[in-house]
Design a protein around this nucleic acid. Structure first.
Length: 477
DNA sequence: AAAAAAT
């Protein structure tokens, strides 16, 4: 199956080829023909499955059919509207739209808050066919009458469950009410709650259900690991883990609050780690800078609230760390979905203090997976800052006593300038990281065939899971 | 319970 078989026009095929894609992903080969046919779609797809191209390509294909080459704004009514829950996601989707529309006479704009509205109004005045927007700023434009939605042919609701969580549904309904009744609607959601189904009932007509990944499941290319740790030494454990994963590996660290987000990021910076923070109280400029810095590699550790939990596509992100477990088990799925994307191997590491074990149990129940636990001496659930310091200091002494050629214990949390010890393949808790390892320990029956193929000894998983580096796991050298 | 989003 190739993109050419899906009935896309040459201009789009060329753009897809330029982007370096040859074969459609499962959701793309399912969604593209259905959308081209004009049917409504209820899509259940995790991000990283090629969902964005799955709706963007057929959307552009349809719009292109009568694409106006006129320079008159009046000939460029808004014909497609894509709504996303966060600004960063809007930017990302808009980039995809631009990528695929490059050989088409189609104008696009991205509308979101936190930035000057005037350039957006200018773009709208000149005329655009495709609008990607967050709900708040779009409503702003609607009230200012800088946009008319009376000729929209296709509307896409991306990450609908997130929109629901964020209380956007009333806004969405207001926006939908302004669209023509005769239109095509696509709704994508990682999870299907009763509320999402109700929204779908009012928004979609005879939708085709497209589901690639099973709901509430996590990618098999992700290795999960839990570190039980006392809250008092969590910060030190994180620094220690980050140091051990050194070698340029990037880490996205999730926290529960904006306050902790800034605090932890500053702490890491003081420890000499290239870190930045992204959360909703930062200016849009700071948010964009942080994300760009992370994507470019200038930032090694991005500390984030759940603003970054969904949809964000960061190439080759090897690690996600839950510094604090998310409030809901579903958020765990979204957060760790930032790694292990597009078939690549990823690591989900969670630092769990005793007060978080309820949450951990809920997560394990939802993902039907018992996550292996590992403890680091000095950083276990009963550790105090003092005991942690003693253990680390002793490890340092052992190391100094040991021969230089032997692999040694990890460096102390605060020794920024100490020489780096050789990388060990056996953790202090005795876990052998030199063996390829895939976490698949407690699957339910319906997934047993998938589990089969993910067993450590099978050729497929041996290929997918590289020998694991120290502690954070994952990347072999 | 916190986060996100219009100013």
């Amino acid at each position: 199956m190739s993109f050419a078989d899906l009935g896309l026009i040459p201009e789009l095929l060329k753009a897809v080829e330029d982007a370096g894609y040859s074969d459609p992903t499962p959701i793309q080969s399912q969604a593209i023909p259905v959308v081209l046919e004009g049917r409504d779609v209820m899509g259940g797809a995790q991000t990283g499955t090629g969902k964005t191209a799955g709706f963007t390509l057929p959307l552009l294909n349809k719009i292109s059919r009568w694409a106006s080459t006129s320079t008159s704004p009046a000939r460029h009514p808004v014909r497609a509207l894509i709504l996303t829950p966060t600004r960063e996601l809007a930017v990302q989707v808009h980039e995809a739209v631009q990528t695929y529309a490059k050989y088409l006479p189609i104008r696009t704009v991205c509308l979101y808050g936190g930035v000057d509205i005037r350039p957006q109004i200018e773009d709208l005045r000149r005329g655009v066919e495709v609008v990607v927007a967050t709900p708040g700023r779009l409503l702003d434009h609607i009230e200012q009458r800088s946009i008319t939605l009376g000729q929209v042919e296709i509307v896409v609701l991306d990450e609908a469950d997130r929109m629901l969580d964020m209380g956007f549904i009333p806004d969405i309904r207001r926006i939908l009410a302004l669209l023509p009744k005769q239109r095509q609607s696509l709704l994508f959601s990682a999870t299907f709650s009763e509320e999402i189904k109700r929204l779908a009932d009012t928004m979609l007509r005879d939708p085709q259900l497209i589901e690639v990944a099973k709901r509430n499941t996590v990618s098999e290319t992700i290795t999960h690991r839990v570190y039980p740790v006392a809250a008092a030494v969590k910060k030190q454990l994180l620094v220690w883990l980050l140091r051990e994963a050194e070698g340029g590996d990037q880490v996205l660290v999730f926290v529960s609050t904006k306050i902790e987000c800034g605090r932890l990021s500053r702490h890491l910076q003081r420890e000499g780690i290239a870190a930045d923070a992204i959360h909703g109280d930062k200016s849009q400029m700071q948010r964009t800078e942080a994300l760009e810095g992370f994507k470019s590699g200038a930032i090694r550790v991005l500390v984030a609230t759940d603003v970054a939990a969904r949809g964000l596509d960061i190439d080759d992100l090897p690690y996600v760390v839950n510094y604090e477990l998310p409030g809901t088990a579903e958020d765990y799925i979204h957060r760790i979905g930032r790694t292990g994307r597009a078939g690549k191997h990823g690591n989900a590491v969670s630092l769990v203090s005793p007060d978080e074990h309820q949450k951990l149990a809920a997560i394990e129940k939802l993902i039907k997976l018992k996550i292996p636990q590992h403890t680091v001496p000095g950083f276990d659930a009963d550790a105090s800052p003092d005991s942690a310091y003693r253990v680390v200091r002793n490890q340092g002494a052992d190391r100094r006593a040991a021969s230089a050629s032997r692999s040694a214990s990890p460096s102390a949390p605060r020794s920024t300038s100490a020489p780096r010890p050789a990388r060990s393949t056996v953790a202090p808790d005795g876990f052998d990281f030199s063996r390829p390892y895939v976490a698949k320990e407690a699957l339910n029956e319906s997934e047993s065939s998938a589990a089969e193929s993910a067993q450590p000894d099978s050729p497929r998983s041996a290929r997918e899971s590289r020998p694991v580096a120290f502690l954070l796991g994952g990347r072999g050298r």
